[in-house]
Amino acid sequence: MFDFDATLPLMAIQFLLLVFILDKVFYTPFGKTLDDRSEYVRSKRVGSQERLDQSKKMAEEYEAELAETRKQAQSIVAEAQAEAQTLASAQMTEAQQEAQGQREAAQKEIDQQKQAAMATLDQQVDQLSNQIVEKLLSAAS
């Protein structure tokens, strides 16, 4: 069982050869693949992190711009509303004044006609009363 012979050194040499050959065909190339891959993954991760940050920043910028635009739109709307309000109130007062004037004119005309009618009525009353007086006087005499 414990039979030492030239197998021992030859096996050692053979094993060392195996170490060198496997280093050439297995450890070095596969290790390179593994290292390359981890390097690749790391760089990709860094790159995508950068791009994520960039897009976040861009989104923030756009949001700020959007808020600004919204504010502008609101102020424009408010301005237009105020303008329309003043315009409407001006037209309203003008129309009211016009209506007032027309009403006053009509009132004046009514008053004139009333006075005229009153004057005619007075005349007729006088005439009638004169006639009544004359009739009574003639009847009495």
Partner: peptide, 9 residues
């Protein structure tokens, strides 16, 4: 035993 002694040495 030759192999294992070779590896151990």
């Amino acid at each position: 035993i030759n192999t294992t002694v070779a590896l151990a040495l």
